[in-house]
Design a protein around this nucleic acid. Sequence first.
DNA 1: TTGACATATCGTAAGATTACGATATACTAG
DNA 2: CTAGTATATCGTAATCTTACGATATGTCAA
Lengths: 119, 119
Amino acid sequence: MAKTMTQPAKPGSRARLIRPCPPETLAAFGQAAECLKALAHPVRLRMVQLLLQGRYTVGELAEDCAVPDNVASENLRLMQRCGFLASERDGRRVYYHVAESHLKNIMTCIEERFLTRSK
Amino acid sequence: MAKTMTQPAKPGSRARLIRPCPPETLAAFGQAAECLKALAHPVRLRMVQLLLQGRYTVGELAEDCAVPDNVASENLRLMQRCGFLASERDGRRVYYHVAESHLKNIMTCIEERFLTRSK
DNA sequence: TTGACATATCGTAAGATTACGATATACTAG
DNA sequence: CTAGTATATCGTAATCTTACGATATGTCAA
């Protein structure tokens, strides 16, 4: 029933309390949703938590999170694709690090909500 | 290669830089991931943005987001299930509102990152 | 009651996500 | 070069998510 109601409210219709969401806003939220999805995974959250305090190799992160190296690699590249992380090779190893300053704020919000008792 | 390496580092092995992630932390991040997924959707983000400034009915939110009522309803209930929203019926209408104080902080982080120019 | 409105739920099909094993690439030590 | 280490990629199957249309429930007005 909210299909194509964009007229200025006909006499008998319910009062229009809100304007339709501007397309730019929905588009921006589309981007935001992509990035949130990249974060919405227990292993990836843990990786970000570690990487916020320094750089680590794929193998180190894999070991901490108890997942195979290729799974760690896939998750790290996912976060790299959306701009959260960057990597640099050092010999055989590849070090990942945080490449998006806002990650710290977002992670702090998440930790405040989920990593403290009192529900 | 990070399969079951929990021994105290044998002589020839690479230095252990990090301890394995405590299971409680991974569990907490599992919860956090669930909630982030509930947020990781353009329409749901828009709904939260609106609901942070007041209460709205399913139909109003559906119209603003340009989705059918049943889709709006499904998305709202999803966020209700994970504790972000609550609802109250008023006659035929059902009003939703924010039920989790941390939502404001998280949404502010997201808006700062995605709803401002400069990339 | 009947009919209309507002919201919710259900079944389903299309599409996305995930982890896995196998393989490929990159690099280094010997 | 060869073998071994570290990371990345690919194909696949199992699982989840999403939106949709149809139907159900709840409420009010006549």
